[in-house]
């Protein structure tokens, strides 16, 4: 029972920051600088999410494998907009590197 309450509390503190801005700021008129700030959020967030996390995505001791997967994903993403293909390339790269290097 205590665990159930804990999970519900975790859900509440996760939901609030997700919900408040979207429901309260939808029609807000914001200064140019703030609007510009929000337009850059996706690119900045993607940058921060990708790096350096991608390097440890195959486990902390397998950075070379993750690096090979990352390079392959970047290579495919440069020539194709198909996200599934990029994901497959990343996984295949790590899988192959794991087989060859370890």
């Amino acid at each position: 029972m205590e665990m159930i309450l804990l999970v519900l509390a975790m859900g509440a503190v996760t939901y609030l920051p997700r919900m408040a801005p979207l429901t309260l700021m939808q029609n807000a008129v914001m200064p140019q600088l703030i609007r510009s700030f929000f337009r850059f959020i996706p690119y900045a967030a993607l940058g921060a999410l990708i790096f350096p996390g991608i390097l440890t995505s195959a486990g902390p001791e397998r950075m070379p494998a993750a690096g090979i997967g990352a390079l392959l994903a970047v290579g495919v993403a440069l020539v194709s907009e198909n996200v599934m293909l990029v994901v497959a390339a990343g996984i295949a790269g790590v899988f192959a590197a794991n087989l060859l290097l370890y």
């Binding site: 995505s57 494998a65 997967g69 970047v74 993403a77 440069l78 996200v83 990029v86 996984i91 295949a92």
Partner: peptide, 18 residues
């Protein structure tokens, strides 16, 4: 061990074309 990169690769696939 190979699947860990999936979401990162997806981020790469979204970021680069844009």
């Amino acid at each position: 061990a190979s699947m860990g990169i999936a979401l990162y690769a997806m981020f790469v696939g979204l970021l680069i074309p844009s």
